[in-house]
């Protein structure tokens, strides 16, 4: 059997199809950073522990270092930069900035994407549920409190409750 050295994949990144010949082992993370120019997707560990490379694949938040580029062939991927006009993302971005949820900012893109995806599936979470939801996204600076505050405030404003 012939071993495939290269395969051609097309990934729709933030609404734009990106086509490239890649090795079958290439991760979606590398594809996004090196081929699609999506440097807002960060690499903190490259083995699924830190969550900085989180993206939305179709409708699910995934760690892009654990997904092969080939698995995203003909599928849609969203990163923070592609969601500039998304109302929920805008609300989260504003909330993160005004609640002091951003320190170094390296975890922030992944954290925002996890939060957005979570709130879409769980519009009225309590604090414990928010903490569970973001437990796969490490943050070393904030101690998480202000991140949870920021997400809770967005959830409350969307459901009409007060934060």
């Amino acid at each position: 059997m012939e071993i495939m050295r290269e395969i051609t994949v097309t990934v729709n990144v933030n609404g734009i199809p990106v086509r490239a010949a890649v090795s079958p082992q290439e991760s979606l993370l590398d594809f996004l950073r090196y081929r699609a120019g999506a440097t807002d997707v960060k690499c903190g560990c490259n083995k699924g522990d830190c969550g900085t490379c989180t993206v939305i694949l179709e409708d699910r938040a995934v760690k892009s270092c654990l997904v092969l580029a080939a698995q995203a062939d003909n599928r849609r991927v969203w990163t923070v930069r592609g969601l500039e006009k998304d109302p929920l993302m805008q609300a989260l971005q504003e909330s993160f900035a005004t609640h002091g949820a951003v320190q170094c900012g390296f975890c922030t893109p992944g954290m925002l994407l996890t939060a957005k995806n979570f709130l879409e599936h769980n519009p009225k979470p309590d604090r414990a549920e928010i903490k569970e939801a973001i437990a796969g996204n490490l943050c070393r600076c904030t101690g998480y409190k202000k991140i949870v505050d920021a997400i809770a405030a967005v959830a409350a404003s969307r459901t009409g409750d007060r934060a």
Partner: peptide
């Protein structure tokens, strides 16, 4: 005042160019 940091806006938009970016 608890003003948002000047660098927070670029960071939430994924626009900050870190060393490896």
């Amino acid at each position: 005042k608890g003003l948002p940091k000047v660098d927070a806006w670029a960071k939430v938009k994924g626009k900050t160019v870190y060393a490896d970016d």
